[in-house]
Nucleic acid binder design. Structure first.
Length: 476
DNA sequence: CTAGGGTTAG
């Protein structure tokens, strides 16, 4: 702020402003200023740089580019970059890194290729940046080319570059190539192990990730919190038989003192729920000293998915009493909680137990589940999360499940964004509530609007057809 | 002087 009003007209002041600005963004002050005011400062400093002609100084230009990138203004950085007549390796690398940070592999590759055409020599940092940009499915074809450049360019024994290669292959879906590079490495560090373990975990190879977790320790490496966060992912732990090694990883984490690490505990809560042990999840959750919205959401979602609807809802209320504000994920978890609860009610029939159950959820036994749904809905609106398509879907589904088809339709009609799940939820809700005609016209409408029905959509609409005659079946 | 590999909920 003070910078914005400051007279910046001498070269030394210019440098000072630029450095202060970049420190503001890079250093510990980050976040204390709104990015809009940082951007404002940056453009003012930029103006002065242009007036003094310092924009052709590669060092100054690089600082300026960094600040723009940190403000999220990659296009402005690109403008500075393009105007720069003589670019050094820092400028090229910064530009590539900027695109990498903002998930723009095609632009990063364009700059990288331009660099090579103009005779620029990428160094290890350039490779780290371009590999980061290519660490996504669309980046694989480019990533392979860069792999060849790296092998020819003499970076075969550079641990960070090779680690970045492993990461690139893992993130772009080619886990086999990732493992190949990993196995070929003569030297590795903790990050290398974390990348490989995380890659296997993300691809659902939990058992393999776990054996690497043991192997790294045999080789003298000490797992850090990232190791635990990498291995304890839902995809790695939801397969049958995962619970055994998850508990083993948990024991290691406790022994190493990571049981006081909130993020590790969050991952444990989630993963225990996913591997079917809600009791272990609850134990971890209860033992936590600090909890954030992720902790609460993980626990609520875990309870919900394991048929502990009542507990999930009371935890949802408790979370808010403790001042933690639910986000989209929390509501999503609640939606699932409601589903499983109501599905369970249906399975069990209307037994007094279920009504008693609902009366705990809601003060009024007569409104039962619907009141509960409305309460969640009200809070979602209050939080401004009802416009989220996932929350909307959950609410449509919940209203249908509680038999309030009019509320479901109201929700459905009011949604600004719908996906195939929205349509299917509404159609099956109508179908199950004997509104076959309405379900069918919605089925036609969804296709007019360009949505392609999925198997569940057909299942719902075919159910309608069996009860209302065959005329519709022919149309389908 | 400047660029920098890995990170939990859905």
């Amino acid at each position: 702020m003070w910078l914005a009003g400051m007279a910046v007209n001498s070269t030394s002041q210019l440098f000072k402003s630029l450095l202060v600005t970049s420190e503001l963004i890079d250093g510990q002050n980050r976040g204390r200023l709104a990015s809009s005011s940082l951007y404002d400062i940056c453009t003012r400093v930029h103006d002065c740089i242009l007036k003094s002609g310092m924009d052709q100084n590669p060092y100054v230009a690089n600082k300026l580019m960094r600040v723009y990138i940190r403000c999220g203004k990659v296009q402005d950085a690109r403008h500075v970059f393009d105007k720069l007549v003589k670019k050094n390796v820092f400028n090229w690398t910064t530009m590539i890194g900027g695109y990498a940070e903002h998930g723009r592999p095609a632009d990063a590759i364009e700059v990288y290729n331009q660099m090579r055409q103009e005779g620029g020599r990428p160094n290890e940092v350039t490779y780290l940046s371009i590999l980061k940009a290519c660490a996504c499915p669309v980046g694989l074809k480019w990533g392979k080319e860069i792999h060849a450049h790296i092998s020819h360019g003499g970076f075969r024994s550079d641990v960070p570059v090779q680690t970045a290669l492993v990461n690139m292959y893992a993130k772009s879906g080619s886990i086999k190539d990732a493992r190949l590079v990993f196995d070929e490495m003569a030297e590795r560090n903790v990050i290398t192990w974390n990348v490989m373990i995380g890659g296997l975990a993300q691809h659902g190879f939990g058992q393999e990730a776990f054996s690497l977790f043991l192997q790294m320790q045999e080789e003298g490496f000490v797992p850090d919190s990232t190791t635990y966060l990498s291995i304890l992912t839902a995809t790695a732990c939801s397969s049958a038989g995962a619970l055994g090694w998850v508990k083993e990883v948990h024991r290691h984490a406790v022994k190493a003192g990571f049981d006081s690490d909130m993020r590790v505990c969050n991952a444990l809560v989630h993963v225990y729920s996913k591997s079917g042990s809600v009791d272990d999840a609850r134990l971890v959750f209860e033992g936590m000293l600090d909890r954030d919205v992720i902790s609460w959401s993980a626990m609520i979602g875990g309870l919900a998915q394991n048929g502990c609807g009542h507990e999930a809802f009371s935890l949802f209320l408790k979370m808010q009493r403790e001042g933690v504000i639910p986000n989209v994920t929390t509501y999503h978890g609640c939606g699932q909680e409601a589903f499983s609860l109501f599905l369970r009610m249906r399975r069990e029939g209307v037994v007094p137990d279920a009504i008693t159950y609902m009366s705990i959820l809601n003060a009024s036994a007569s409104t039962g589940a619907l009141g509960w749904v409305k309460e969640v809905h009200r809070q979602a609106v209050q939080a401004g999360l009802d416009s989220d398509v996932r929350v909307g879907n959950a609410l449509v589904h919940m209203y249908c499940k509680t038999g309030s088809i009019s509320d479901a339709r109201l929700m459905f009609d009011g949604m600004v964004e719908r996906d195939v799940i929205t349509w299917t939820a509404m159609i099956s809700g109508l179908a199950q509530n004997e509104c076959g005609q309405e379900a069918f016209s919605l089925f036609l409408q969804m296709q007019r609007e360009g949505f392609i029905p999925v198997a569940t959509t057909y299942a719902s609409i075919l159910n309608v057809c069996t009860s209302t005659g065959l005329a519709m079946v022919e149309e389908i």
